Amino acid sequence: MTTSSDVPAPKPPLRIAMVAGEASGDQLGAGLIHALREQLSGTRELVVEGIGGPEMQAAGCRSLYPMEALSVMGLVEVLRHLPGLLRLRRRLGRQFLAEQPDVFVGIDAPDFNLGLAYRLRRSGIRTVHYVSPSVWAWRGYRVRNIARSVDRMLTLFPFEAEFYRRHSVPVSFVGHPLAERIPMLPDPVAARQLLGLPERGPLVAVLPGSRLGEVQRLAQPFIETMQWCLERDRSLRFIVPCASPKTRELFESILARSGANLPLTLLDGQARPAMTAADAVLLASGTAALEAMLLKRPMVVAYRLAPVTYRLLQRLVRVPYYSLPNLLAGEPLVPEYIQDQATPVNLGQALMNELHNPSRRSQLMQRFRIMHGELQHNADQAAAAAVLEVAGG
């Protein structure tokens, strides 16, 4: 006979505080919440609250404040919003300390989240930070503060995990979610059909950046690069996916002022199908370079910064490469040009070599496939397993 005392008491809900500061973090947070719920598999209720965007909220996160409050870019903008950001962090800290979640997960936004994590951890709340700041590249002294602030760092790239192990910071390499979502064998023909482009003929995707400052600095040299290439190969066609209406408006105005007459298609968004459809990609350094690598596209990477910022970073940055494919490979796998090196001639020559060198293309595709596989760690599930381990749940 079974008595009520023989029935195990239900576990209390697993309470997770989670803060994401922009769209990419919102996507990571949503994937993490879904994976947490799957791993708990109905054995324990999951309660998530903090700050998240529409995807985290749809996954079940109760957002206490709008995510846009943290989405501040640029030094001047951050300084202007700093008093409000500090007030928000203090308010969140008081609330989390009062509610005592099982674990706090800060997703990216390191300047905001690591300070909050430090305060919570000092009071006994376990903490996880998801997405490493570029501490391995510059301001390396921050690793000491990270060690005091987190019980576990979750990294997207293996070289980041190696850095933290060298500094005795508990770390889990979870892989990159994009490596799960992008197929190992992309379909360029299907992408061209989707975009209404001819199935044949050399096509170059041109991505001058997702932010207005990037487009302002790179649009003109990219337009001149297209013109340089077209003068040498009249069969070329170009496609430019614009990240937002504002970046499209800016690019169109710079294109009009340039007077260039290019066989060019402008798109609203759709960067991934545009790169998939292309034979080569000219792009601003950033996540787009990682995406182009996962899509197995030959690429030329460029970047320009404000002159003062560039001079400052020259003194501070301690890595031999700045594009993600080269950082992952540990060698100059793809051509990259920064600041004054990002000229139409340099970019054009490199781009033509990527278009017209079949043996290099074949070798590059093989390396990209290997690197793609190395990033496939089922990131959402791996991150969830690490968070549950830290939470003791």
Rank of each mutant, 00 (worst) to 15 (best):
S123G: 09
A288H: 08
A205C: 14
A147S: 03
P320L: 04
R192F: 05
S253Y: 03
L250K: 06
R15S: 09
K296R: 15
N145Q: 07
R361Y: 05
R152P: 01
P198F: 07
L194I: 13
M67K: 00
L32Q: 02
H356T: 07
P66G: 04
T309N: 15
S123W: 13
H81T: 01
G60F: 06
R367H: 15
S258I: 12
L185Q: 13
R139P: 07
E38K: 06
D380T: 05
P54K: 11
G74W: 08
L88G: 00
Q314W: 15
L195E: 03
L355N: 01
L313S: 09
A382E: 05
G124F: 08
L75R: 05
V334P: 01
V48P: 04
L195G: 03
V171D: 00
V308I: 14
E49V: 04
Q341N: 12
R181V: 11
L82K: 05
S323H: 09
N353P: 06
Y303L: 12
L282D: 10
D111I: 03
V72D: 00
Q227I: 14
R360N: 03
L82S: 03
L75W: 14
L375N: 06
G213Q: 11
Y321S: 13
V169Y: 01
A17V: 02
R44W: 02
L262A: 10
A277Y: 08
E224K: 15
L218N: 15
S5E: 14
L14Q: 02
L86Q: 12
F173Q: 01
A384D: 05
T247H: 07
R15Y: 04
E331M: 12
P8V: 06
A117M: 14
A35Y: 02
P177C: 10
V131M: 02
P66F: 00
D26A: 00
V143G: 00
E55V: 06
L154P: 00
E291I: 10
V345W: 12
S258L: 13
G393F: 10
Y321G: 13
S168T: 12
M293S: 10
P198N: 08
L86G: 04
S132E: 04
I51V: 09
L347V: 13
G209D: 13
A191G: 07
Y337Q: 12
Q227R: 14
Q366G: 09
L218P: 15
R217C: 13
L236T: 05
R90M: 06
V128G: 01
L97Q: 11
V78G: 03
P273R: 11
G373C: 13
